[in-house]
Write a protein that binds this DNA or RNA. Structure first.
Lengths: 194, 194
DNA sequence: CTCGTGAGTGATTGGTCAATCACTTGATGG
DNA sequence: CCATCAAGTGATTGACCAATCACTCACGAG
């Protein structure tokens, strides 16, 4: 094993890798229809050990979701630093570009979609609210934009989720063009081929 | 064959009521975690009979989804007739008002959210694409709006879904106000209390 | 009456999955 | 050399669920 690492105990390090696996696997099939065994297999540990690292399935899902929103905020900050001092609309535009780049692999985005559909589980609803609150507050204070500008920013983010979920960027029909016109989109780089 | 009764054979009539139940019940807990037995119970028939009326669970879900999008288009048409001859932006605004009224009970909206999260089932993905295509095409041709106007219309529809899912209309915090500002919202009338 | 048919159900099957528990292994230190 | 503790697993339990099938019941036609 790769012991002798001081800061994280091996169990904490394992938790980190399991959360990373959870993001990938939950993003594919959602909360209810993803068995813990699928996450365990992806992380190359036994299902039983997942339950030693997390008290229940929902706790693992929430941990994955929290990290997801953290990565989003990091990406927004990234876009903002590139446009320091510019008008709010320009800062928000740069944030949008960073976000578009971030969700190129679809995992962070699909996890959000699945989380929003699983809000009948109280812990998940709470985590999504927390995440949206953080993202909205950050976008507003960091860009200095008006509420209406921030609202528009979030609305088009949601539209972007729909377009990606349905894979509409390649559809060559009038209605699809209306929806995708001007929306930034990074072509998905090929995923794992197991 | 059938007695020339009213319009529908009893089995077809049953199918209609089961689809209505399916909208309500699938809207609450989604595709994967809603057992057919829950729909059957709501429709007051046995689970076995549901499978005589529909070949598989996914077929019932798709039937519910199709009816959902049909009801949406009917509502949009309703808004449009009230603003005939006016500018596209006004027609779209009226459509938005009709839509806000339609989803007051949350079922039609939550069903869409759950469907968008269940797009890993090909039949469901196809049904959602079909529905979004119809709604977008209808909004564009009936209002005569530009692609950009229609895109904005759909984007704010998606934002509305997020707000309703998270129940943000009553949240008294700055970030929540930014998101809900100016979004029409009909207070949910009390549901069933069994 | 009785035959045929469509409506509707009970019971079962085969499978999946969250969660638990008893167990093994390996490293560390006295 | 042994005691201890963390890492990690196999096996099992108990519940749930999609789908199937054999069955009953009511009713109209001949």
């Amino acid at each position: 094993m790769t012991t002798q690492r001081p800061h994280l105990s091996t169990a904490d390090a394992r938790r980190e890798t399991v959360v990373a696996s959870a993001i990938t696997v939950f993003a594919r099939s959602g909360y209810a229809s993803t068995p813990i065994a699928a996450v365990a297999e992806h992380a190359k540990i036994s299902p039983a050990y997942v339950f030693k690292l997390f008290p229940a399935k929902v706790a693992l899902f929430v941990a994955a979701l929290d990290r997801c929103y953290q990565q989003i905020i990091d990406a927004l900050e990234d876009g903002a630093t590139k446009t320091d001092g510019q008008a709010p609309a320009d800062v928000l535009d740069a944030m949008g570009a960073s976000y578009a780049a971030l969700i190129a692999d679809r995992d962070l985005m699909m996890l959000q979609v699945h989380a929003q559909a699983a809000t009948d589980v109280p812990e998940i609803a709470e985590a999504v609210r927390r995440g949206i609150a953080r993202v909205t507050s950050f976008a507003q204070s960091r860009s200095g934009g008006s509420p209406a500008e921030v609202q528009r920013f979030m609305a088009f983010g949601q539209l972007c989720h729909l377009l990606t979920t349905l894979d509409l960027f390649g559809v060559d029909e009038p209605w699809a063009h209306s929806l995708t016109e001007g929306i930034r989109h990074h072509a998905e780089q090929g995923g794992e081929t197991p």
